[in-house]
Simulated scan of single mutants.
Amino acid sequence: MNEPMDMEAVLERLKEKGLRLTPQRVEVITLLYQLSHPTAEQVYSLMSKKFPYVSQTTVYSTLKMLKDLGLVNELTYGDRSSHFELTQEEHAHFNCKSCGEIYDVDVKDAHQLQYMLHAEQGYQVDFVRLEFYGTCPACAAGGKSEADAGRTKQ
C-alpha cells in the first residue's frame, strides 16, 4: 500500500502556501504520522501533554487546514466521530467492532469496482471509500481491548 507523502514534503507544502510552521502545527502533523487514524480528541490529549496551554481550537483548526489543503483525510462515521489520516492513495479501511481501531487494508480490486460502476451502469465515480467491519486479528486472538484503540502505528 502506498504511504502518505513524507513529513518534509508536508511541511514544504505548508511553507509554499505561506503558512507558518508553528510548533503546534508541526506536532499535529507528527502525531498524524505516529498514530493510527486518531480522533481530534486523541490528538489534543497527546498534544496537551507537550503543550499544556494548547487549545482544542488550535488542534481542530490545524486539522481543518490540513484537510482543506488535501494533506489529510477526515473519516466520518454515523456516530458522528471523525478520525484523521494523512492523505495517501485510495485504500480500504477495516473497523474493529471490539477495540474500535481502524486499519488501512489493501484491496486490489477496489478500482475494478469503480470501473464496473462507470462502464456497466454509467455512474461517474469521483471518490471511493470502502469500509469493512468486524473483529481484527488481535481481538479475535484475545490480545487487545478498547484501551488499546488509538495506539501508535506499528
Rank of each mutant, 00 (worst) to 15 (best):
N2E: 12
N2W: 04
N2I: 07
E3T: 05
P4E: 00
M7R: 08
M7S: 06
A9C: 01
A9D: 01
V10D: 03
L11H: 02
K15T: 09
K15V: 08
E16W: 09
G18F: 04
G18T: 05
R20T: 13
R20S: 13
R20G: 11
T22C: 08
P23E: 15
P23Q: 14
Q24A: 15
R25N: 11
E27W: 12
V28N: 08
V28F: 05
I29C: 00
L31Q: 06
Q34Y: 08
L35D: 03
S36E: 07
T39A: 00
A40C: 08
A40M: 09
E41Q: 04
E41P: 03
E41K: 03
V43C: 15
V43K: 15
Y44E: 08
L46K: 11
M47L: 07
S48Y: 05
S48H: 09
S48D: 08
K50P: 00
F51R: 12
F51Y: 10
P52H: 15
P52E: 14
Y53M: 05
V54W: 08
S55A: 09
Q56L: 13
T57R: 11
T57D: 13
T57Q: 15
T62C: 09
K64F: 02
M65Q: 14
K67M: 09
K67I: 03
G70V: 05
L71W: 05
V72P: 00
V72D: 04
E74D: 03
L75V: 11
T76Y: 08
D79G: 01
S81G: 06
S82G: 12
S82Q: 10
S82H: 07
F84H: 15
F84D: 08
T87M: 14
Q88E: 07
E89T: 03
E89L: 03
H91Q: 01
H91V: 02
A92E: 00
H93K: 00
E101F: 00
I102K: 03
D104W: 00
V105S: 07
D106Q: 12
D106N: 13
V107T: 06
D109T: 13
D109L: 09
D109G: 15
H111K: 13
L113D: 11
L113C: 09
L113G: 15
Q114R: 13
Q114P: 00
Y115N: 15
M116N: 11
M116I: 10
M116T: 11
H118N: 14
H118C: 11
E120C: 11
Q121T: 12
Q121C: 09
G122P: 06
Y123E: 15
Y123K: 12
Q124K: 13
V125L: 10
V125Y: 06
D126M: 03
F127P: 01
V128P: 01
V128N: 05
E131H: 08
E131Q: 14
F132N: 04
Y133R: 10
Y133Q: 13
G134D: 04
T135R: 09
T135A: 08
A138H: 05
C139A: 10
A141M: 06
G142N: 03
G142P: 02
G143S: 10
K144R: 12
K144V: 05
K144A: 11
E146G: 11
E146V: 11
G150V: 04
Q154N: 07
